[in-house]
Amino acid sequence: MMGKVLAAMIVLSALAAGGAMYYFQVYGYYTEVTASGVDDVQMTPVGTSMPETILYEDFQAIDADSSPIRYRACFTTPTSVATLTETYEIYDGGAPRVAPGWFECFDAEEIGTLIDQGRAVVFLGERNMEFGIDRVVAVADDGRGFVWHEVNDCGDKTYDGSPLGEDCPVRNLNDGDT
């Protein structure tokens, strides 16, 4: 009888731990970002390094302190993709990461398909907004827009231990970077 009680306790503990891990991965660390209404969506113009705000509406975003790549946002813009491509820097290799299912406006698979089909273009939002992390903005031909964070070359080099090289900014370890 004692063995059954111990087995039941182990199973219940494992279920509780699994449920807690699921909750924290999908819900627990994420918070909704309060839109400022002024500078929530920015992109970097061609030939500059300073991002500027674009026209946008219907902004929604989530973020988490647990990882610099958990940021996701959705918006709409009246500006055409053709106008944006003439004005802002295109970002090569941007691929959206999956968002939690409850953040319904950000469907990484659909966004990836739009990019692959040429129906959306990925732009540089801000390079090294945090050391090794770029903010990128994708805009679809129907005016929907999506924002997420990408690990850039400097971040890849940092994580795999390679020498950073001259094209990477100097890291300021006093700002919380480790």
Rank of each mutant, 00 (worst) to 15 (best):
R119F: 12
R127G: 15
F131M: 11
P96D: 08
W102A: 06
Y88V: 02
P96R: 04
G101P: 10
E109G: 11
E89K: 06
W102P: 03
R97H: 04
W102T: 02
E104T: 15
Q117I: 09
M129K: 09
E109D: 14
E110V: 05
I133C: 09
G118L: 08
M129H: 09
V122E: 11
A95N: 13
D134E: 10
F103T: 01
D134I: 04
V122C: 12
G132I: 00
P100E: 10
E110N: 02
E89C: 02
T113K: 13
D116P: 01
A99R: 02
A108T: 07
F103Q: 02
T87R: 06
D92K: 14
F131I: 07
R127Q: 15
E130G: 13
E109I: 10
T113W: 13
E126Y: 01
F106V: 05
F131H: 08
F106Q: 03
F123S: 09
R119H: 15
E130N: 12
E104A: 14
I90S: 13
I115T: 05
N128C: 01
A120T: 09
G125P: 00
G93Q: 13
P96C: 08
M129W: 08
G118K: 09
D116H: 10
E126N: 14
I90C: 00
Q117D: 15
I90E: 13
Q117Y: 14
W102L: 01
Y88I: 02
G112Q: 07
Q117L: 15
Q117H: 12
F131V: 02
I115G: 07
G94A: 12
V122G: 03
P100V: 05
G125T: 04
R127Y: 08
L124H: 04
A99G: 03
F106N: 04
E89I: 00
M129D: 14
D134N: 10
F103M: 01
V98H: 11
G125Q: 06
G125L: 04
G132A: 01
V122D: 09
F131S: 10
V122N: 01
F103I: 02
D92P: 10
T113I: 09
F106W: 03
G112H: 05
I133S: 12
G112Y: 07
R119T: 14
G94Y: 05
T113Q: 10
I133F: 13
D107A: 03
R127N: 13
V98C: 00
F131Y: 15
R97C: 07
D107N: 11
D107L: 02
E110A: 06
F123G: 04
F131L: 10
I111D: 07
T113P: 00
L114D: 08
V121T: 15
D92I: 12
G118H: 04
E126K: 07
F103L: 03
D116Y: 12
I111A: 08
C105W: 07
F106R: 00
N128Y: 00
V98Q: 15
D92V: 12
D116C: 06
G132N: 06
